[in-house]
Design a binder for these strands. Structure first.
Lengths: 346, 346
DNA sequence: CTGAAAGCGCTTACAG
DNA sequence: CTGAAAGCGCTTACAG
């Protein structure tokens, strides 16, 4: 495959006038090597443009030096339209991996149904990061199987009490409250919720619970007719809003469980001649880049993906080192934009 | 790191009652192994849930079984806001790698300036895929250095005559023509171009040349005051449109060199009280998912990312096998949406 | 068709 | 502080 004969640690040893073991020690930063010797080795390495062979090193150390990222999106989602929220996470995870000198292997679940076997067990990766809004219950037993086999895994998602796994997630419940309180403060009283609200989608469900709780505390009865299921895509958002309209119930605000749903809803509202925010206030969740660029700009809940990515990687590395790791619940921030400002837009 | 002792090919050999070499042969699909023996091996593999150790296999075969994807965005781009166009490519590339049984290592250039050394030379990957709108001239010599060291690389980008490398790109020139012809057909005569138009950004430049050529063939003189530099971000698009307005030149259409630029421009137009398409027709390039969801929906040029990803991977694999590989120029399609329809919207 | 053996390029006890 | 040697788990000539 590679025609020019490889430079190995023996070549370095020869050039530096030391043994191959010393080269290895010098390069791995062993403290028990003379500083002058180390410098000689480092010079030879630079001159010959040598790089340690990862396969050999990893084989010997029984360590892959690699984390695998498994992204499982809703089956309904078109693979070419991955949720931008995940892209943002991917960037953060990639960066965190690089900082810890780990490689990142990326895989999309749709393409490899047998991922639990493919990955961690092939010893390609020391651990895996699970990302995705897939049905939670449906992969609970996959998670269990992974754990049984000693595979280290962390996941982005709902942080639920009594979970055996390590989850990093944002405070969806608080996010649901923030949005709902804001909409109430704008004078809205009939607030629709677009998004699945069941234990199959615990993140959406927590947002829904925050919404429902806030309404009740404000003395407003939660109307089931105002909730419509939707997975996190624009088309699901469009469809959900159409369903809502078809029900003929009155509503003065829409709280979409994700920005993609909100953008779909925005589209559908416009198509039905409803103005945002004048007729209907609208808010989403995730604060994807796009949220600030739709018209009107979309009120949303910011999750700090940079921090999330870092914590996912660091938690996994701790797990790999056998250290105790707890789940983490990250705070959220409400980003108010024009889509929900009825007072000004009146 | 991994407490439970690993299952190796020796365990399989023992259980199947054959030698370890036979296990290896059976698993690599060697034709010189008895079908019955192979079945016995396969059964033992299934029972013990064995997986070939990639590190050992790759070390022995001098083969990484991995491709590296290097994404280099504009330095100005916020890392959390990667161009969705690239996400779409990433999906396609991941899928193509999986189909060819290669792993994909992902890296973002901002995080590792010395990528040319880090990657291919560390023998982590058999070859690399370069993705990104970075300054072309500035990495021409990086490309040359990679080639000198025998690194296999393919890139997504402009396909220029006389390039020594393997590039896969879309027909940007044709795309520029399509957009411009369409805007002319809508009755526009003063069409601005937002995007860098120099050899530093050959893709944008090709789009610009298609634009300029079409105008001239229509008897319209290209006015340099109507071109404003912009890299591919929303904020650059906003800034470019502000610059255009500040120049005080009249324009009835904007052709943005990318959808992100177009969306930034759309934002800025709205802020200045200019209606799209009534006052200004607008078109972008890339046809990202978002293009259909902004208001009004954005006319754009579709590049087939699924096909592009597949061809990038297949070209690289051919290069790795030492087969001759040519650059590929992919066709584009104009997607007309409301943002450019002045006739109807007039 | 199958087995015994060498070796891929490292890391790390073990002995000095 | 340094070297000689074993061995990580495979693949693949080599010999039958």
């Amino acid at each position: 495959m590679r025609e020019r004969s490889r430079i190995t640690s023996f070549d370095i040893a020869h050039r530096a006038g030391v043994s191959q073991s010393t080269v290895s020690r010098a390069l791995r930063g062993s403290s028990q090597v003379n500083e002058e010797t180390r410098q000689r080795v480092l010079r030879a390495v630079a001159e010959l443009n040598y790089k340690v062979d990862k396969n050999a090193s990893n084989l010997r150390r029984k360590h892959a030096g690699t984390l695998a990222l498994l992204l499982s999106e809703d089956p309904t989602a078109d693979e070419s339209h991955i949720n931008p929220f995940f892209l943002s996470m991917l960037g953060a995870i990639t960066r965190a991996c690089a900082q810890h000198d780990y490689d990142l292997l990326v895989s999309f679940q749709q393409f490899s149904p047998d991922w639990h076997a493919d990955y961690a067990e092939a010893h390609k990766a020391d651990g895996i990061i699970l990302l995705g809004y897939g049905d939670y219950l449906s992969y609970c037993d996959k998670l269990r199987r992974l754990a049984e086999r000693g595979t280290r895994a962390v996941r982005w998602g709902a942080v639920l009490p009594g979970q055996g796994d390590v989850s990093i997630g944002c405070d969806n419940h608080a996010g649901g409250r923030l949005v709902t309180e804001h909409l109430l403060a704008q004078g809205c009283r009939r607030i629709a919720f677009l998004g699945d609200a069941s234990s199959h989608y615990p993140e959406f469900f927590a947002r829904y619970l925050g919404y429902a709780e806030t309404l009740e505390q404000a003395g407003i009865t939660v109307d089931p007719a105002l909730q419509v299921d939707a997975v996190s895509t624009e088309s699901a958002g469009q469809a959900a809003l159409a369903t809502l309209l078809a029900r003929g119930v009155a509503f003065d605000a829409v709280f979409a469980a994700s920005d993609l749903i909100a953008i779909g809803a925005l589209h559908a509202l416009g198509a039905h001649g409803l103005r945002v925010p004048a007729d209907v206030a609208l808010a989403g969740f995730d604060d994807i880049a796009l949220a600030g660029f739709v018209n009107p700009p979309l009120t949303s809940v910011l999750q700090d993906t940079q921090q999330a990515g870092r914590i996912l990687v660091e938690s996994l590395l701790r797990l790999i080192r056998g250290e105790p790791v707890a789940s983490t619940l990250l705070p959220v921030t409400l980003k108010v934009r024009r889509s929900s400002l009825r007072r000004e837009a009146g």
